[in-house]
Write a protein that binds this DNA or RNA. Structure first.
Lengths: 144, 144
DNA sequence: TTGCATGCAAAGGATTTGCACTATC
DNA sequence: GATAGTGCAAATCCTTTGCATGCAA
């Protein structure tokens, strides 16, 4: 599932060096947590997990790091409106399955033979992503 | 573009009556504003516009009404993460073009010959929507 | 050493909620 | 007249920011 966490971390370190960002344990820890989780955690959830290793980190730092990672293109926000932002370290072209009951989000690869045109309604198009809404197995079972 | 505002309002009134919700000018005004706008306004923007007609309404009521409308399926949140939630009264199957610079959102109809399977990864699938990211005409021009 | 990054706490913005009052049914 | 809906203001939740200190380069 997660392709070479270490390799991705190395890339991140390289990127930081090349643009003059310092390599701090906090930054690495935040990215590593995101790499190891495929459930699109919130900043709060990342924070909880980073804290297990580095109890001194602050939420603000996690927010700042996540913003940096996003700007560098290492992670992205899941395009869905819930209570708080959810992040995804999977940068390959993929889509999301979203449970409309509990909000769980899973990645899906789809072989869709469709590419958006370069321009639509005057917009210069860069990429697209698909949200598929449904009910996850857990929520199907808990129906009474 | 907007298909029969009055007709849709009537449907809403009918729905309210059938489930015992009261018909108040605030509710109608909020829905009407949403029906007449195709630019996916925020709650704040809806509020500003409703206020022109009914200067006494409160933001809280707009929030509550928008929530009701969403639960009844008359409007939906645009699945994109920006500063605040944006709503859409277009309930036909359509997709969104999103400007990554200014956040503008436009509706698009796509003829995609793809239907999601009934089940994916155990999720029972209901519907899907596509976000297409790019740069809107306005932002293309303002590049220096 | 030289900043950039961090931690802390306070600020800010969006949204929700409690309560008394009002208006629809 | 009963009750759901509203307005107001306070509360809450999520996120950002200012500032002094600490650490990577």
């Amino acid at each position: 599932m997660v392709t070479d966490v270490q390799e991705r971390l190395d890339e991140f370190v390289k990127a930081c060096k090349s643009i003059g960002l310092k390599i701090t344990p906090q930054r690495l820890a935040v990215y590593e947590v995101l790499l190891r989780r495929t459930d699109h955690p919130t900043v709060e959830e990342v924070y909880e997990e980073v804290r297990k290793l580095y109890p001194f980190v602050s939420l603000a730092t996690v927010y700042r790091t996540v913003e940096t990672l996003e700007e560098l293109g290492f992670i992205s926000k899941v395009p869905y409106w819930g209570g708080s932002a959810r992040y995804d370290a999977n940068t390959s072209h993929h889509h999301h399955l979203i449970c409309t009951v509990c909000g769980a989000i899973a990645d899906v690869d789809l072989n869709i033979n469709w590419e958006p045109p370069a321009y639509m309604k005057g917009y210069q198009v860069h990429r697209f992503s698909i949200n598929i809404y449904g009910v996850c197995p857990k929520c199907q079972n808990s129906k009474t």
